[in-house]
Design a protein around this nucleic acid. Structure first.
Length: 486
RNA sequence: GGCGCAUUCGUCUAGUGGCUUAGGACGCCGCCCUCUCAAGGCGGAGAUCACGGGUUCGAAUCCCGUAUGCGCUACCA
């Protein structure tokens, strides 16, 4: 046993932002750890100095925190298996790779980039698999010694055995078999002294006592290299689970070209973390029942790797929108209030002041009509400013010849009200309708148009109550002056 | 090209040999409710389970092949 508790890791390379595919991988790791009372480790795979991006790690951490994926060990918080940045673990990789060299499982390669390039072209011309020809494996100790003395640059390669079956047991895919002849003598240590992913991830996973390697399917074909390394070191292999890829609508691997891929893009668009997590959880996994709406706790309770799908999943934004609507609806109005206030601050109504009570009424009346917090402002702008235009098609349909006169009558009825509540408005309207001998609809629709400028929205009496008597009368007057009957 | 993985409604999926005239969800359409729009309720269209062979009394489910898609094939991760 590697460890008596489940230990998993999310090991991104800091290339700038957290990809939604990465979010899903991180989530599955997190869920698996939490479900099994295990530990979730964050490890930064920053061994490629050419791809270093300023601020990427901070950004990654911020995004993970936003999503609620708290890790037990990793950058900022540390842990007993640190450091958690691979760039700070160089001596460790060195020590282990030397062990491999001594055992003959790895060797120094002094080949020039040109020779490798030519080799590859030759192989491609013959339609052969492109792989290193073990040329430097034939170097004698003395030759190696001499080249090193001369300061020649070299890399360290994995000495892959010839014609050997490599069997891998994957939790989501079952048995997968490779022949070692299809595996290249992978570079373990680059000429700059940094390890490649393959060496670093194996050494670290072992040292950090990782029990389950849960990662994207793009790693499946390099797993033989990793497995070989575990065997050479005589280390127990962790269990592997390779997750299906997230796809564009055209089924290619999810990419920037065809939409947003950064978690922060969705965050900026106003998606709730609950919705994004819920959505991404269901992309490649389901509990076997018909439940679609999940909170994090329920995901933790129900998640298992055995129920992860094999095939890639298209990232379909329509369903995400629906989930956002559902999760927004499930939120207490008080929570939405603070989000709405934030949204208002960044809107053209930033200068205006609205009481919490007023906004809470807005929220209650619009909750079932919006999918995003910003839509409270966009869809029911009339709560934040008087309408200046009136929907032409609604005028056509609802504003009749006798409407002005009827609304005038209604206005007088409203004027008599004292601090009216919802019911008072309704009673006043209905009795006016009766008095005028018309159906209530004859007043309701034009009145909605008059106070909101549109033909849709919350129940009229909720609207009137929230707006208040004075404002309602003001708006009726404006409408009466502006709208010409047709 | 080589190697690997995958393939059920447009999309996410249920299904692990008989319970399936293949179930649910999103989206779409219709009806009901109704002061509008939503929400909600009800219903509909939508999958010859990629294709072809087997195995079996019986296959979406097991096996083989083909096709297609995707991934990997870097001194990237």
């Amino acid at each position: 046993m590697i460890s008596d508790v489940v230990r998993v890791r999310f090991a991104p390379s800091p290339t700038g932002y957290l990809h939604v595919g990465g979010l899903r991988t991180a989530l599955y790791n997190y869920l698996f750890a939490k479900h099994n009372n295990g530990k979730f480790v964050l490890r930064i795979e920053d061994t490629d100095r050419n791809r270093y991006v300023e601020g990427a790690v901070e950004n990654l951490i911020t995004t993970m925190k936003w999503a609620g994926l708290d890790y037990d060990e990793g950058p900022e918080i540390g842990g007993e298996f640190g450091p958690y940045f691979q760039s700070q673990r160089l001596e460790i990789y060195n020590k282990y790779v030397n062990e491999l060299i001594e055992k003959g499982n790895a060797y120094r390669c002094f080949c020039s980039a040109e020779r490798i390039q030519n080799l590859r072209e030759e192989q491609q011309a013959k339609k052969l698999q492109a792989k290193y020809d073990k040329h430097c494996l034939n170097l004698t100790k003395e030759e190696i010694e001499q080249k090193m003395q001369a300061g020649e640059q070299y890399v360290i390669r994995l000495n892959v055995p010839v014609n050997q079956r490599i069997l891998i047991e994957d939790i989501v895919r079952g048995h997968v078999e490779f022949n070692s002849d299809t595996v290249d003598d992978q570079i373990l240590i680059k000429s700059d002294g940094f390890p490649t992913y393959h060496l670093a991830n194996v050494v670290d996973d072992h040292l950090m006592k990782i029990t389950h390697v849960i990662r994207g399917e793009e790693w499946l074909t390099s797993t033989p290299k990793h497995v070989l390394l575990y065997d050479f070191f005589e280390w127990e292999r962790p269990k592997f689970a390779h997750l299906p890829l997230l796809l564009n609508p055209d089924k290619s691997k999810l990419s920037k070209r065809q939409g947003d891929v950064a978690v922060e893009d969705y965050q900026k668009k106003g998606y709730l973390k609950e919705a994004l997590i819920n959505f991404v959880a269901l992309l490649g996994w389901n509990a076997g029942d018909d439940v679609e709406i999940y909170e994090m706790e329920q995901l933790i309770e129900k998640f298992s790797l055995e129920r992860v799908n094999k095939a890639g999943a298209v990232f379909n934004v329509e369903k995400l929108d629906w989930l956002n609507f559902e999760h927004l609806k499930n939120k207490p109005n008080e929570d939405i209030l603070s989000m709405l206030k934030e949204e208002l601050k960044n809107s053209k109504y930033a200068e205006k002041n609205f009481s919490d009570e007023y906004l809470l009424n807005v929220i209650e009346s619009m909750k079932e009509r919006v999918s995003f917090v910003k839509e409270f402002i966009e869809k029911s702008f009339y709560y934040f400013e008087s309408p200046t235009e009136f929907d032409e098609s609604v005028i056509q349909k609802r504003w009749k010849e006798d409407t002005p006169q009827q609304l005038t009558e209604l206005r007088s009825a409203f004027e008599k009200l004292d601090n009216p509540n919802k019911e008072d408005f309704e009673n006043a309207l209905r009795s006016t309708a009766e008095k005028l001998n018309v159906g209530a609809g004859k007043l309701i629709h034009p009145l909605r148009l008059a106070v909101s400028g549109t033909g849709q929205g919350p129940g009229l009496f909720d609207l009137l109550f929230t707006l208040g008597k004075e404002e309602v009368i003001r708006r009726i007057n404006t409408a009466l002056e502006t709208i010409k009957p047709n």
